[in-house]
Amino acid sequence: MSSRIIVSAEINGEPTEFLADERDSLLEALRDRLGLMGTKEGCNNGNCGACAVLLDGRLVNACLVMAAEVDGAQLTTVEGLAREDRLVPVQETFLERGALQCGICTPGFLVAAHALLQEHPRPTEEQVRYWLAGNLCRCTGYDKIITAVLDAADRTDVASG
């Protein structure tokens, strides 16, 4: 029989303790135990990327992580990208470019694109498309998303340079 467990993790910079069922996925824990509804459930089997989060700095799908596994880990969800009302560049360019329609895939794209720009500040279009291959969008046809990410890379460059 599964039981209730206490999980301690640093979530979006805040030390957090929460109660979870031993069989909860990280996605279920984020949404149902912690109220962090930004992380979306799409396919729930690792194909769509709507639940992408950063686990100890690595991009992962929260539906393919057990909540119990993150005890002692650092997590960043879409709620943790912006700082003090200041959006990260890729959030700004998604808004400016209208890189979303229904919005379900958007948090996953934002987290994945943010991770890409942290690792490759000046990606080529091909790198962007490969990196985001695990994020599915059924509305936009992707071009606006790719353009927004490339714009954000330009902006990051200017900001840091």
Partner: peptide, 9 residues
């Protein structure tokens, strides 16, 4: 193998 988020795990 998979996409970036799969390769993270």
């Amino acid at each position: 193998i998979g996409g970036t988020a799969i390769q993270g795990r």
